[in-house]
Simulated scan of single mutants.
Amino acid sequence: MKLALVLPLALAAFVGVAHAEDSDKVRETTNAEADAFNARLYGATPGDKAYACFVRRYDAEHLARHPKQKVASMKLLISAEADKEDKRLHNSFRLGFRYRHRSGDFDSSGSCGSHAVLLSQGDEVRMGCGVDCEGGGIEVALSKDNKSAIVRLEQVRVWQNNKPDDEAEQSLVAGADDKIFRLDRTDTSECAGLVTDRKELAALRHK
């Protein structure tokens, strides 16, 4: 199968946003391009561990302009860890948000794999992140000044109040105003609430 077809299918497996007619406008990143994206994402070339936190709390004025938006606030934590066996950097994500008209905290998490270059978007690099067992996922890009993460989704499996069971399991589905989120880079302590492992929480707070 040609690479031009493989990459859109790979992205579709993550977030379901690729289209057949765009197959000639997407290509896989080179190792150098992926490394450059990771350096922009984490603010420097990642070592054995690295974190990046992005947050957005939508104010009343924004929500008034987007009456169909379901999300009131969102946090994104991207983590990198070097694997001692394959010597490669592995990225993962944790997403937390609150709905506009529903109570409770919702979260999702998974691994981030492929990077792709969208030729039709000025060679924009996006990283695909997915939830296990066909749970959908997100695409993550960066603003030109690296101060914001651009999150795109079609559907992603989420859990309420960090309860990974069938009863709590739901999905955040993109609506008219819930397909693209621009989150601002901030101190990693803002994303501490997304971490449940004590050792990782300690490492995050020392970044």
Rank of each mutant, 00 (worst) to 15 (best):
M1V: 06
K2E: 13
K2T: 13
L3H: 05
L3F: 07
A4W: 02
L9D: 07
L9A: 15
L11M: 15
A12Q: 11
A13P: 03
A13M: 07
A13V: 08
F14R: 04
V17W: 02
D22W: 12
R27L: 02
E28P: 01
T30Q: 03
N31T: 07
A32H: 04
A32L: 09
D35V: 03
A36G: 01
F37V: 00
N38G: 02
N38R: 13
A39G: 09
R40S: 03
G43M: 12
T45I: 01
P46A: 05
G47A: 14
G47E: 10
G47P: 03
D48G: 11
D48N: 15
A50C: 08
Y51A: 02
A52V: 04
R56L: 03
R56W: 01
R57V: 13
Y58P: 01
E61T: 15
R65N: 07
H66T: 09
H66G: 02
H66A: 11
L77K: 12
L77V: 08
S79P: 00
S79N: 07
S79L: 00
A80D: 04
A82T: 08
D86Y: 06
K87R: 15
R88S: 11
R88I: 00
H90T: 05
N91A: 01
S92H: 09
S92C: 04
F93K: 05
L95D: 03
G96H: 11
G96Q: 14
F97E: 05
R98A: 10
R98N: 13
R98V: 01
R98G: 14
H101R: 14
G104P: 04
G104Y: 10
C112V: 09
S114I: 15
V117A: 12
L119Y: 03
L119I: 13
D123I: 04
D123Y: 08
E124V: 08
V125C: 08
R126C: 09
C129T: 04
C133R: 15
E134V: 04
G135C: 06
I138T: 14
E139P: 00
L142Y: 07
L142P: 06
S143C: 08
S143V: 10
D145C: 11
D145H: 08
S148T: 13
V151D: 05
R152L: 14
L153Q: 13
E154L: 11
Q155C: 05
V156S: 10
V156P: 11
V158A: 14
W159S: 04
N161Q: 11
N161P: 00
K163D: 06
K163C: 02
K163A: 04
D166K: 07
D166T: 08
E167F: 09
E167H: 11
A168V: 01
A168S: 15
S171C: 12
S171H: 13
L172F: 08
V173R: 15
A174D: 01
D178A: 08
I180M: 06
L183H: 06
D184V: 12
D184M: 11
R185M: 06
R185F: 12
T186V: 15
D187M: 03
D187G: 15
E190N: 13
C191K: 03
A192K: 15
A192T: 04
A192I: 01
V195W: 06
V195P: 03
D197A: 15
D197Q: 14
K199F: 07
K199G: 14
L201V: 05
L201D: 02
A202D: 09
L204K: 10
R205Y: 03
K207A: 00
